[in-house]
Amino acid sequence: MSCKEPIMNKIIVYDKANFEGLSKEFACDIPDLHDLDFGDCISSLKVIGQPWVAYNVPRFEGDGFAFEEGDYGEIDSSNKISSLRLVHQDLSDPQITLYEDPNFEGQSKVVKEETNLTYGYFNDRVSSHVVQRGVWLLYKRQNRGGWYHIAWPEERIHDYKTQLNFDDSVSHLHPLQPGRPIITAKLLWDQKKVETEKDILIDEIVGTNCTEYEQAFTANTCREYTATVFQSFHFSNTTSLKLGFSFQVTVGGANIFVVEKGKQESTTTSEKVEVLLPAKIPPCTQLSIQVIKKETTTTVPVELTICQNGKEKTEHAEYQCVSGRTISTRYTMTPASATQDASQANLISRRV
């Protein structure tokens, strides 16, 4: 096998526990780690992407130990690792058929997901199997316990006793899971749509000057308001992404939106906006200042490129942004009677 697997699939191995000591990184099969001065010494490892199988004998012989994506801070010291194989097979739709008797005879059971046979009627009754799709771990004991056999696609084991020394003792099946998909989100800005635009009154300040002289405005000449941006992400009904999966969407500049499937899938950001107010009120005038936030709802189609399991596919989604960043003021001046009581001479009120 060549080293042309996508770089998203790799394994990092360490000669000490807890990812310490010497380390090496691989992205393709390694038939003999001794050739690289790293045989029988791996004590911890990290898997990124597709699963790997580690063998205790060079050239992928001997017992195999499967490692799905994740961090393994300590490897059993008895698991001497001499070769590494990347699982490049399609793991997206696993299926195995179990048979009660050798040579694929007797009652059969089709399994498509992780299954504990001790909960049903087929426990310790399997004598042969055929793997249609995926890579399966067949355990001797329930809850992934005991020794397990790695069953590859199209594998046909006609007799457990002679080929596996299993003695009809399969109790648990686990299909290896593909690594996390790598998502590239492309926002199609040329198809952007402005759904709604509306003005929202967020503050109103009224100043009344009932004198015949220009008066200073007693309110602050500068005020701060919070501008909000509400972002949401909606997947198509046919998306293959599972609940809990998260990835980043770069909307523009420093705006990086983190999407997590199955959660609120939205975020709100706030920022302060300064609004300058007039410094003077003309004689016999009531000045009304309305602070207006323009709220715009925009939707943008999104093209998702999903790379997983050695395959690439395209799905569709929608990004929506409700922005209230634009804050402005409107001024209204109306006459005020000069005969009003002097206590009303420079009255400031505020309404929200």
Rank of each mutant, 00 (worst) to 15 (best):
K263G: 05
K263S: 12
K263D: 09
K263A: 03
K263V: 07
K263P: 00
K263E: 09
E265C: 13
E265W: 05
E265Y: 02
E265P: 01
E265H: 04
E265K: 11
S266V: 00
T267H: 12
T267W: 08
T268R: 10
T268G: 01
T269C: 10
T269S: 13
S270F: 04
S270A: 09
S270P: 00
S270E: 08
E271T: 11
E271Q: 14
E271A: 10
K272T: 03
K272C: 02
K272G: 04
V273E: 06
V273W: 01
V273G: 02
E274D: 07
E274W: 00
E274Q: 12
V275P: 01
V275M: 10
V275D: 04
V275I: 15
V275L: 11
L276R: 10
L276D: 14
L277V: 12
L277W: 06
P278R: 14
P278T: 13
P278V: 10
P278Q: 13
P278F: 08
A279V: 13
A279S: 15
A279Q: 14
A279K: 15
K280H: 12
K280C: 02
K280R: 15
I281N: 02
I281W: 05
P282A: 14
P282N: 14
P283N: 11
P283M: 09
P283R: 10
C284V: 01
C284Y: 02
T285K: 09
T285S: 12
T285I: 06
Q286D: 00
Q286G: 06
Q286V: 07
Q286I: 02
L287W: 04
L287G: 03
S288P: 00
S288N: 11
S288L: 06
S288V: 11
S288W: 01
S288T: 13
I289G: 02
I289H: 04
I289M: 11
I289E: 00
I289P: 01
Q290C: 06
Q290V: 01
Q290L: 10
Q290H: 07
V291P: 04
I292C: 05
I292H: 06
I292K: 08
I292M: 11
I292E: 01
K293S: 14
K293A: 14
K293V: 09
K294A: 07
K294R: 15
K294Q: 15
K294H: 13
K294C: 07
E295A: 06
E295T: 14
T296K: 14
T296I: 15
T297H: 11
T297W: 00
T298R: 09
T298A: 09
T298K: 12
T299V: 15
T299M: 09
T299S: 14
T299W: 03
V300E: 01
V300T: 13
V300Q: 06
P301M: 10
P301G: 07
P301H: 08
P301V: 13
P301E: 07
V302N: 02
V302C: 13
E303D: 08
E303H: 03
E303A: 08
T305D: 05
T305N: 08
T305F: 04
T305K: 12
I306N: 05
I306M: 08
I306V: 15
I306R: 06
